[in-house]
Design a protein around this nucleic acid. Structure first.
Lengths: 329, 329
DNA sequence: ACTCAAATTTGAAACGTTTTTCTCGAACTC
DNA sequence: GAGTTCGAGAAAAACGTTTCAAATTTGAGT
């Protein structure tokens, strides 16, 4: 098997194992000549460092955990891409887990991450309860919240202003002449859904908002919401969906029933995923700096891990951007 | 810190460390009474096993690596979801890496996976060269090929018949009356792209096929391909795109230039991602059992790892399915 | 009660690194 | 040139599990 360890390398290079370790971890502590001799030995023997042994002794690993709510949602995919790019650049590996919105699955996954002794965790929490995250921190695992503002000042987070985004979206619908607006959303226990609703209500300034709450945030759920709105009669004249997946499903459901968009009903989504622009009626949306979210969160996390002394915790809040397309013209 | 190890648990339960380990790894070897005593201690102390120590001693870890070509492509996202579901069910963690089509990045990522001593690797290779995979196997890391047939009989793989898929797609275009067909593809060094082309040519039986090769397989590249076809004049009367991302971009580019689809140009994509059905003109496509691909590959891999004795290597080939929508009607 | 085998538990030696302490010279200081 | 500092490398002790042979307990059969 892979019988070549640091010991064999040391022997082959005529030095002690400790020196090989130094070459690996603090090359500057080692004279140029022995260093190149050791590096040659490593290459010749095809040595690959045993990460577990290293982690065990050093007390920390070269991996970060990423826990997302729905790996199938392009929003999270983009975040993941940002995370992976930064982590991979810095030599870290990414442990991916998908909570699928289920609290118990999230909890199981976090346990696995804790067992793997990840250096830190990037997480979009599936609910507001901070205790299991605090438990991680107590274990010495840094946590950075993604798409969610931090609970506490000594924690990093990267988020987007969802109240502002909801307000922008509905203000846009109102400016287009809408008077009867429906908000189609996922579970209101999800902060993003709740905040966007708050923003929507703020824009309405007291006027009523119909709320349609679905269990999932998928195209399928969006289509069901459309059927529900239609069958219950009294279509609104504008619909704001809590994400583009819902909006695309809504669009399909409406068109399928012969409702014209934006003629009969104006429609706006959220996230501005790539496919929003390519849909049957191109979709207005609220754009979030998704990929950037993943990048910045990871940079924050790795900074916290690698320079704990100088690290300053930050709560970063991005501003979303209104993208107007056919569905609200 | 996390000062609670197997030792503290042992002490707290009044047994030896070895017994705690047995409770963890071979509960059946331990009497019911001590087992419950140990389990209580674990719960009370909040003990979490140190995965690295375990891996180091036992010689194998509870993680699998997943290397995909483009984490942003819904095709791979679906595969990833399948992988994550199975792995998570079995208590394995998934190390995600994105080769972004770059061979050198793939190589770097595989090195990181090797350092982490993953139990096995699921990979959609970015090229045909099997040597780096063989090197992994020599290190005792099982490899399962995803969306790619195995090079050798002693290796598992899960793939979809791309030649057949290409043939089906083009046969469908021909049956709709097309006579001048263009194939818009990513790099032909990618097997999938090449095989779909072979299938297309087989369907044409000698008649010529225009090939437009793009560097990426994204909506942007698809749109550029559309502009290229238009500016070079002589539009084909049907376009077959190597994936739906390209097709969606192509669709946008064509519509933007006032070309009617399918009136002037019929269009078919590949993969049948969720968004294919929701696009401006709903997109005909060739569906692949994507999620299933990830599930089956992972089951194969974990079977190979957990039951090396009885494991029979398999090369599984799924058949794709033609989905006809507006873009070819 | 006594034996013997089976079932259970113990204790110590790994696993492959990193880290800390020490040694040995060579290069400085005055 | 004696004393001091400094840098490079060596040696050995961890890190927290698993494993395996050895020791102990249990229980069935007499």
């Amino acid at each position: 098997m892979s019988a070549v360890g640091i010991k064999e390398v040391a022997e082959h290079a005529g030095v002690s194992p400790g020196t090989v370790s130094n070459v690996l971890n603090r090359p500057e502590k080692v004279s140029a000549s022995t260093r190149s001799r050791v590096e040659a030995a490593i290459r010749e023997l095809g040595f690959v460092r045993h990460g577990s042994a290293s982690t065990l002794r050093a007390g920390h690993s070269k991996t970060v955990g990423l826990s997302v709510i729905d790996i199938g949602n392009p929003f999270f995919t983009d975040v993941t891409a940002g995370v992976e790019d930064v982590a991979s650049d810095r030599g870290y590996a990414v442990l991916l887990s998908n909570s699928a919105g289920s609290r118990s699955k999230e909890e199981r996954n976090l346990l696995v991450l804790a067992e793997q002794r990840v250096r830190g965790v990037l997480i979009t929490p599936s609910d507001e309860d901070p205790t299991r995250l605090d438990r991680l921190r107590d274990r010495g695992i840094s946590v950075v919240l993604v798409d969610h503002p931090a609970h506490r000042p000594d924690q990093c987070s990267v988020a987007v202003n969802d109240i502002g985004g909801g307000e922008t979206a509905v203000a846009h619908l109102l400016s287009g002449g809408a008077t009867d607006i429906a908000y189609v959303t996922g579970p209101l226990t999800i902060r993003q859904c709740l905040d966007r609703r708050l923003g929507a209500e703020r824009a309405l300034g007291g006027r009523p908002l119909r709320v349609v709450e679905m269990a999932a945030m998928t195209p399928r759920a969006g289509q069901q919401a459309a059927e529900k709105l239609i069958s219950e009669g009294g279509l609104p004249d504008a619909v704001f969906c809590a994400n583009d997946l819902l909006a695309l499903g809504m669009l399909r459901g409406l068109l399928h029933a012969g409702v014209r968009v934006p003629g009969d009903v104006a429609l706006i989504g959220y996230d501005d995923i790539d496919f929003a622009a390519a849909s049957a009626v191109s979709l207005s949306s609220v754009r979030q700096p998704t990929y950037q979210l993943g990048r910045v969160a990871t940079e924050l996390l790795l900074d916290e891990c690698d320079n704990p002394a100088t690290h300053a915790h930050q709560q970063i809040m991005f501003q979303p951007e209104l993208i107007v397309r056919e569905s609200t013209r």
